[in-house]
Nucleic acid binder design. Structure first.
Lengths: 215, 215
DNA sequence: TAGATTGTTAATCGATTAACAATC
DNA sequence: TAGATTGTTAATCGATTAACAATC
């Protein structure tokens, strides 16, 4: 791998979009694309796209552009999609079940290998071929499977307890749907938060404050 | 309302967090808080918090700090939580059902008043007290209820058709879980995207590229 | 009054955009 | 070679942080 170091989050958050779009182009048979065309289709500037890509190396060819397939593969590698991070999910309620059933973990670098909940009513139900286990079983499961990432879809208070436990076992990577601030308590963790409430509130703000709606 | 104009998205995206945290403080009986204390608890700088709040007005008192209850209420008003934007949701699959059942729309400025899907197997099922209707019924529903926001939880291709339809009817506000780029096609819409795949890929990148993991 | 903490201006830092030389 | 488009440096823009005067 070439350069790579101190890549800003702004850049990293654009990579999945590039990746997604390039795969789409590839599927529709496009072989080559220029930064200008990419920028037009994505609503960004060509400059930004070239700048972003060049954080990781020169994938293009002067006077020609980028090979779609090759660039898609390169970005996939940068993102690490062919990793198989063993993943467990906590909280088999509405949201947790949906995430387990809906997400294509495999294509995104993760293997979902276990689902845990402490409600007896949930334990035993099958989601995407995985039986929900009692959270009590997790220590034994951990010892055997050594998962390295945890998805948190529990209520907030449960999340605090669970993270204490997972952290102590050695899990440092979290996809966090709760409002519990993991990184604040454990600074050496790696947390990606999904705050659905905050997202919806942002929309609420925008609707309330858009032009012609200042009541 | 005082100032307010050209508030940057960076600021707006922090407001829900302030709001959430202040409600929590309020519940635990805290009456007053300084920007310094807030900053420590949230992991931000005091300067940033004061700067953010002063986009909307002076809510504090020199030498004293901010009244928790009053500030929470002010931010709630800025966000518009007491709005009752009539909302419909499209796509009663795993994700859509979970969003419908899990989100507290009421507390966040929205009223979920209808759920639509075009799979006969879904139509008629009840989610959070709302019967899923056939998408075919939407025009009649729209004429009666005039919803003003739509949540999109369908596959991407369905989303394109649905948005064309909703846009033509006059709906301009979207909470979009699909990868269809609404704002690109309809620039006068207001769209809040939730891209779960992108979020997970970002985590994948971070795990793959964290210190001591450069394989 | 003295101490504390805001509101606000100025300085810094980082991210985006523009420009252009290198080169395919 | 001429035309096109990248890679990269420099200029601009915006967001964050620091500093401090105003004031409760």
């Amino acid at each position: 791998m070439p350069k790579r170091e101190n890549i800003s989050m702004s850049v990293i958050r654009r990579l999945p979009r590039y990746y997604r779009f390039l795969l789409q182009l590839q599927k529709s048979g496009v072989v080559r694309i220029s930064s200008t065309e990419l920028s037009a289709r994505l609503g960004l500037t060509a400059s930004q796209i070239r700048q972003d890509l060049n954080c990781f190396g020169g994938f293009g060819q002067q006077g020609y552009g980028y090979m779609v397939e090759q660039l898609a593969e390169a970005i996939g590698n940068i993102l690490g999609v062919s990793n198989r991070y063993r993943t467990v999910l906590f909280g088999a309620g509405n949201l947790g079940s949906a995430i387990a059933a809906h997400m294509n973990f495999k294509d995104l670098g993760f293997d979902l290998i276990g689902i845990f909940d402490n409600a007896p009513s949930k334990v035993g139900s099958i989601i995407r071929g995985i039986a929900v286990q009692d959270t009590k079983n997790f220590p034994a499961f951990y010892a055997q499977q050594k998962p390295e990432m945890a998805v948190l879809c529990t209520p907030r208070t449960a999340a605090e307890r669970i993270v204490d436990h997972l952290y102590q076992l050695g899990i440092r990577n979290y996809w966090n749907f709760t409002h519990y601030n993991i990184a604040m308590k454990y600074p050496d963790t790696l947390v990606e938060n999904v705050h659905l409430n905050d997202s919806l509130l942002t929309l609420c703000y925008q609707i309330s404050n858009q032009e012609g709606n200042e009541h």
